[in-house]
Simulated scan of single mutants.
Amino acid sequence: MSLVPADVEVSEPTAAERVCSLLDAASSVVIRACGEHHDLDTPVAVHGSRLRLSAPLDSPLTLAATGEPDGLAVVLDLTDIAPVAVRDRVRGRLTLAGRLRLAHLADDGVSVHLRLDVAHAVLATPYGTSALTGADLALASPDPLARLEADLLTHLADDHRDAITMLTRLLDPQLLTGRPKIHPLALDRYGLVLRLDHPDGHRDVRLVFAEPARDTEEFGHRVHQLLTAAHSGLPAHRF
């Protein structure tokens, strides 16, 4: 769900959607509580401003949360690192504050599910910093491609270099001065981001799909549409 009016063309996720997507794709997080750092190797179940995590039953974090009836004040830290090998691989850093509570015992009997109610979050990227409230996140959902982004990007980078080269035909030729190395940096339902890597710096360019992709099959179709446009010399939406 988004606060963007229906008649406004959307070309990229909102900051709240980016936060939800980053959490949804995470396989581990760092929780700061009571002056300690706790590394949790756990996926995050995202339900708007409410997150679900898992932790060992006897972990200090679980014990601390159990002893706080109003919830344990915590900060969650998460770094978004590009799955493709490029310079400056950090795409964003998320800091999220809220209250952690014991939800229930897991089926394995040795771990628990913890519920984190988000109060506010800050997402810092190379393009700017966004401050969000729990209410903002409650209106957002993860991108449908978030959990598959790493596999899709590495597949493009490793097995379809010819397609990446073809897509550069959609770019302003001036951006290609000096023959930069081109890498797929990010993707979501709205489009594909290419990293133009020069010896003295880099620039990121987004190629926008004609329509958002709802799944991997539609993502493949949208990339094919971009390739067709590139082969035909047609203009493409980009920024």
Rank of each mutant, 00 (worst) to 15 (best):
M1S: 15
L3K: 15
V4T: 13
V4N: 04
V4A: 09
E9L: 13
T14P: 00
R18E: 13
R18F: 09
L22I: 12
L22R: 13
A26P: 00
A26N: 12
V30C: 06
A33T: 04
E36F: 08
H37K: 15
D39M: 15
L40E: 02
T42G: 00
P43Y: 02
S54H: 13
L57I: 10
S59A: 08
L61F: 12
L61C: 00
T62V: 00
L63I: 04
G67Y: 09
G67N: 15
P69T: 05
P69G: 05
V75L: 08
L76Q: 03
D77N: 10
T79I: 09
T79K: 09
D80Q: 07
A82C: 09
V86H: 04
V86F: 03
D88V: 06
R93W: 11
T95W: 05
L96Q: 00
L96D: 08
L100G: 01
R101H: 07
L102C: 05
A103P: 06
H104P: 10
L105I: 12
D107P: 01
H113M: 07
R115M: 13
L116G: 01
A119G: 08
A121T: 09
A121K: 06
A124Q: 11
G128Y: 05
A131C: 11
A131S: 13
T133D: 08
G134W: 02
A135Y: 11
S141H: 15
D143C: 02
P144A: 05
P144G: 04
L145F: 02
R147M: 11
L152A: 10
L152P: 10
L152T: 14
H155V: 13
L156S: 11
D158E: 15
D162W: 09
A163W: 14
T165C: 03
M166W: 08
T168E: 02
L170G: 04
L171Y: 00
Q174I: 14
R179F: 10
R179S: 12
L187M: 04
Y190S: 04
L192G: 07
P199Q: 06
D200A: 04
R206G: 01
R206P: 02
L207C: 03
A210P: 07
A210Y: 09
E211D: 13
T216Y: 04
E217V: 13
E218T: 15
H221W: 14
H224F: 08
A230M: 08
H231R: 15
S232K: 15
S232C: 12
P235R: 06
P235G: 01
A236Q: 06
F239K: 09
